[in-house]
Design a protein around this nucleic acid. Sequence first.
DNA 1: TCAAACAACTAAACCGATTTAGTTAATACT
DNA 2: AGTATTAACTAAATCGGTTTAGTTGTTTGA
Lengths: 336, 336
Amino acid sequence: MAKVKLVDVAQLASVSKSTASQFINGRYDYMSKDTQERIRAAIKELDYVPNPIARNLKADRTKTIGVIVRDITGFDTSHTIRGVDDFCKTCGYNALIYNTDFDPDVEAKSLEALYQLRVDGIIIASSGGNNKLISDYINKGMPIVHFQLEHDGNEKNLILSDYRQAAFDATEYLIRLGHKKICFVTQDFKNVKSRNDRYLGYVSALEQHNIALDKNLIQYWHRETGFEHSPISILQSKAAPSAFFTQHLAITTDLLSQLNQTKISIPEDVSLIGFDDIPMAEFFKVPITVVKQEPYIIGKEATKLLLENINDKAKGSQKLMIACSVTERQSCKKIL
Amino acid sequence: MAKVKLVDVAQLASVSKSTASQFINGRYDYMSKDTQERIRAAIKELDYVPNPIARNLKADRTKTIGVIVRDITGFDTSHTIRGVDDFCKTCGYNALIYNTDFDPDVEAKSLEALYQLRVDGIIIASSGGNNKLISDYINKGMPIVHFQLEHDGNEKNLILSDYRQAAFDATEYLIRLGHKKICFVTQDFKNVKSRNDRYLGYVSALEQHNIALDKNLIQYWHRETGFEHSPISILQSKAAPSAFFTQHLAITTDLLSQLNQTKISIPEDVSLIGFDDIPMAEFFKVPITVVKQEPYIIGKEATKLLLENINDKAKGSQKLMIACSVTERQSCKKIL
DNA sequence: TCAAACAACTAAACCGATTTAGTTAATACT
DNA sequence: AGTATTAACTAAATCGGTTTAGTTGTTTGA
């Protein structure tokens, strides 16, 4: 490949490596116009491109960051990655993507791999299963920015959606349509603040509209086992809800497939508002109304924060909140 | 960050750098058990991790490949990237993603950036606008593997779907349902073999079933301007088709949105089979039948091919075809 | 007029590994 | 007994840059 190196340029321009290097790095102090011109010509003639590896070795950095996500294939995730990537390229950085498929062990291995690669920093949507490990890396001096998931005790270098407001808005949206029995479908939210925040948003919307909280309407869903109680059984219970509010795209689609197999229809029989936007929603049998996050912006901001951290350790240890917005489609019915 | 280096290990183990290096690289020839043990202990004690930058500088490689795609956010593309990434990680490589957003200039810049970064190789779904440039890089010694798009004259290091067979199968699927007037909606396929192949598949299915080719049923679509003739006008023409066969996900969805605004319904009024799979298809008003590619496999195979090329320039200059399959859903009606 | 300041460079050390070419001491061979 | 071989190491060169500490010749200042 490119074999021409700095010495070659220096030789051709009849200067020393040092001078050539100075030129390349734009430090023209005390360098004659003539010398500059000769070096410029030599570079052009030889089609010289500095070797970033050698450069990085000396500078002790990689101009590379790591991004740990669950699955790049996810709709929101892919947009977050775009945000990260676009911002990175803007600043001369590159991003290395690591997929964990929701496995904390893979997450730990990714962290270690990125550490060994000496990336300049890491953006992670962590599973919560590696909090100590992550702290260790931070203590070793690795800049790390979290997004999406907030775990108790971590208030720094964090960027997330305003989950509480989002859940509040979604719930209120349903309430305004006349719904009082709103089933909140969630993953376990102990220790996961960003899930708990949604719960708080839901609760406070109910409160503000003087609707009593019915614990039977809090329903749980797990990634591996699905619904704790099937949606059908929920709808047949005596506290049957008139609407579902699902806290994650995977929950929304799981609910959708289950209802698809029954005669129950949306929004005639139940309304549904989801968290996270849905690809191709316009073509759905019933386009689903959602509170959507801004994954692209989150990616961009996370990267911005991380690069601030990298370039100035003192700075950038904030917690940033991005607003969500209800996107009205056709899955919520007005009721009396 | 990690400041401990090989000398530190060597010192602690009371050996020379050379010996320590040998140990790390698993060359234990002529090294006493005792020495090995001391080095192992020192590494553990100091928590030493070799600096890959220094290593790569010496080895003149990066253990990194570049991937140039249009948009990582696309459904198929994101899966291809997963395939690339998964295979890369398997072999100790990392992948750097560059998005071009269908812009040949961005593509050219990405190529240059990756070249300057000295990636070990590049996987590209090229726009076709940079063929000479790509040849230049190949001649400079950069291993490059193409996927998705095949341009005339490039038969090497190529991996793509069996477009011709796929289009044949899709067309035949419609014919078997009784369709004779099948509208083939395509992008301009001059000079783009992988598009022309679809056309040939379509034509040969018609031929094989003794259906005359009606040029009016070949319709064009452009990425910026959309349909040359609107689907509605096509359906109102005297040669009105009973089915559409769209050659790309973007065409499929464009068609879908246009029909959505009319009373025309699928499959009652027209049938539709698309190229490329569709996310969340099961929730569609009418789940669309498609011939789907295998983007994940393509990513994996492309990477395999590229790594073969990297490690053995002589090998791996093949053209690989991956089969597609018709996924039957509900957008095609049986007609008399 | 002579030292201080400065312009315009360069030699050599350095970044953190790998690798080549030795070195030394013990063993094997004739 | 003297050379050849081998085991077990090490010093130094190398990868391709950047940076520090000089060097040399010309101006400037008192």
